[in-house]
Design a binder for these strands. Structure first.
Lengths: 151, 151
DNA sequence: GTACAATTGCAACTGACTTTCATATTGCCG
DNA sequence: CGGCAATATGAAAGTCAGTTGCAATTGTAC
């Protein structure tokens, strides 16, 4: 479940500022939470962590900041097959897209990069003359452990 | 009131009955709506159409029936990149999975089947030893028209 | 036909997210 | 350094999709 976090800290902040967006205390806090997350977090988890750093952050500000990051293409929104309710999860947009696999039994989320996935997206762009902005491949099923374990 | 498609029960109805599930008036109606849909419908659209056939169907019954169909693997739930709010869309599960492309400008949804997609899923099952139950590849971007048209 | 578990409808509830609007803050200008 | 317009924030209320509890009804097996 650990994410490949090969990013420099403060990168999100630098990116936002270079685009002429205002850097507030709250945004800095939320950005640092998103940036240092070792797993996929939903909005309320991000809020909780942000409040540990700065207790006066509102829920609304978290939602607004996540929307901003989404619009800027700096984070991706995931559904993770709606395993727990309808919440969304967020992760920094990686250099290379990956697939999310959600185990329907243990709930584990696994990521997988694949050359075939990259080629498939290339095919879509070419054959459908469709210019891809964002893509999401989520798979639900049973992980190696769960499909070989009883009960 | 007798229902329209009683003489030739649709595949969904036959499938549910063969699995020993009860066939109620309401389910028959909802099934026929899902079965004859020419586009992706959300729960409230399904309700509205079901009520045209049988005005006494409750919203809750639609949700419960859709959940049943999902659990039985007879319909797939789509997000279509959350183009309009957080609603979900439904479609009968096809023989062969396809990709959904959502144009971020005109909102058009296009479907695309691809051998590469099938191979990618095979790779996931093999390389990750992950047994796929359901998969969803959604792509947001710009369709051929929208990316070549001004404004 | 009867029994009885499954299904339905209603109303109230939940949870995630958004809007409104008055107040506060930021980044820029001189 | 202020001044200040544009932007962001927080609190409360609102929206929207979907769910739950429960009494009444219905489908199916006998």
């Amino acid at each position: 479940m650990p994410l490949p976090q090969t990013e420099t800290p403060g990168r999100l902040q630098a990116e936002l500022m270079s685009r002429g967006l205002r850097m507030t205390r709250q945004r800095r806090t939320i950005l640092s939470v998103v940036e240092t997350a070792k797993q996929h977090l939903d909005a309320s988890q991000i809020l909780r962590r942000a409040r540990k750093i700065d207790s006066h952050i509102d829920r609304v500000t978290v939602y607004r900041t996540l929307n901003l990051l989404k619009r800027q293409g700096l984070v991706d929104e995931l559904d993770l097959m709606h395993m727990q309710g309808e919440k969304h999860y967020y992760e920094r947009r990686p250099q290379r897209d990956h697939i999310h696999m959600a185990c329907l039994r243990c709930g584990k989320i696994t990521e997988f990069e694949s050359d075939l996935f990259d080629r498939l997206k290339g095919q879509i762009q070419r054959d459908c003359r469709f210019s891809i902005v964002v893509s999401r491949l989520e798979v639900g099923g049973y992980c190696a452990q769960c499909r070989t374990t009883d009960q």
